[in-house]
Amino acid sequence: MSIQHFRVALIPFFAAFCLPVFAHPETLVKVKDAEDQLGARVGYIELDLNSGKILESFRPEERFPMMSTFKVLLCGAVLSRVDAGQEQLGRRIHYSQNDLVKYSPVTEKHLTDGMTVRELCSAAITMSDNTAANLLLTTIGGPKELTAFLHNMGDHVTRLDRWEPELNEAIPNDERDTTMPAAMATTLRKLLTGELLTLASRQQLIDWMEADKVAGPLLRSALPAGWFIADKSGASERGSRGIIAALGPDGKPSRIVVIYTTGSQATMDERNRQIAEIGASLIKHW
């Protein structure tokens, strides 16, 4: 058993032996400061991975655009179909130039040979490839079927209504393609630790998130040596930015963190910096 498999397999085991986890309101002070700095709403939640207890939250039940963070949920739905014998990670999917949409750094290189379902999930999560996400959405029946999958998990909040890139429109008060921090954190925890997916599929999902290559300026920039993080970021119109993550010290995840912001006029660099500073406060007061 690899170190990674050891880590995921023991998450339920550690729940019975973990020390009490204490919240630190200092992080919420930073979240509120980020709102002031960005001139935008910020949603935040910090969840204990083992118990599911909410440690801190700010606007946990307000809607925010999901942006590309939905791609983790999408690959969770794909893995659920794999577990049920309805899909194979090794199945190759062929597509054409007409299928390519904006920001497809991986799929645009494989027009001649296509990509496997496994490769598409990797591209969608680690590189946020939009065509990969659309191709995967097609395999499960489209955005409405992803919403149905989430409903069956008990998440009646999170919804996907459109495809890439239209889902990134982020119109104020538009509930399409949105979630709430509390709903996203709970759903992510179920995917990573619950019985919905097999152990192998849970491991695969967290491996893809751990290999994320496009979230460096966010929480990863504040991470001390030896800490673990598996994450997925997102960005969209109207100053929207977000990240969902499982992270913790000693090389294993122990908390879920979800951060969303929307409605800012700030630059992408400034949005990144504010999220990184929230992460730094979280780690300092861990």
Rank of each mutant, 00 (worst) to 15 (best):
D231G: 03
E175R: 08
I11T: 10
T179L: 00
L197H: 02
K252E: 12
S96I: 09
G239D: 04
L120S: 02
G216H: 07
W163I: 08
L160T: 06
E145V: 10
S264N: 11
L223R: 02
A40I: 06
D161L: 01
A148V: 12
M1T: 03
T262S: 14
L218T: 03
A211T: 06
D207G: 14
R189G: 07
M268P: 08
P253Q: 04
A148R: 15
E210Q: 11
P172G: 12
S221D: 09
P224G: 02
S264G: 15
A280T: 10
Q203T: 12
D212K: 02
E237L: 11
T178E: 01
G216W: 07
K213V: 09
T186A: 14
L199Q: 15
A266D: 05
F14G: 07
H5C: 13
L160C: 13
S51N: 10
K213G: 09
E237Q: 09
A15E: 04
T198S: 14
S221G: 07
P217N: 12
P65Y: 03
E237A: 14
L197P: 01
A222K: 15
R81H: 08
I244V: 14
P217R: 08
G85S: 08
T178I: 02
V8I: 15
K213Y: 07
F149V: 06
R162G: 08
D177Q: 01
P143C: 02
A266G: 09
P65V: 04
W286L: 12
K53W: 07
I229S: 00
L55I: 13
R220G: 02
Y103D: 08
R189A: 11
S201F: 08
G114A: 05
L10T: 12
T27R: 07
P65Q: 05
P143T: 04
R176C: 08
L10P: 08
L38C: 05
S80D: 08
K232T: 00
P253L: 06
P217V: 07
P65E: 06
E61N: 15
E166C: 11
S233C: 03
R81L: 08
K144I: 11
I243Y: 06
P20D: 14
K252I: 12
M115R: 02
N134S: 02
E277Q: 08
T186R: 14
N98E: 14
R118I: 08
M115I: 06
L167T: 08
F14I: 15
P249E: 03
L219E: 01
E169Q: 13
N152V: 10
V214Q: 08
A40G: 15
T186E: 14
G85Q: 12
L73V: 09
S221L: 07
P217L: 06
A200C: 10
S264I: 05
G85A: 09
R189N: 09
Y95V: 06
L160Q: 03
D48G: 05
V257L: 07
S240W: 01
V72G: 00
G154R: 03
E145R: 11
A170K: 07
I206V: 07
E237V: 12
P105Q: 04
P253S: 05
T198V: 06
I93E: 02
H24A: 07
D83H: 01
R202I: 03
R176S: 08
T116A: 06
A170G: 14
P165A: 05
A222H: 11
G39S: 10
E169A: 11
E210A: 10
L218P: 03
S201L: 05
K252G: 08
V21G: 10
P224L: 01
T186Q: 12
R238I: 10
S254P: 02
E166R: 07
Y44M: 06
D269Q: 10
L38V: 05
D83T: 02
I283H: 01
S281T: 15
R241S: 08
E175C: 10
G141E: 04
A211S: 13
P105L: 05
I3S: 12
D177V: 01
E175P: 15
P25A: 03
K232D: 00
F58C: 08
A84S: 14
I54V: 14
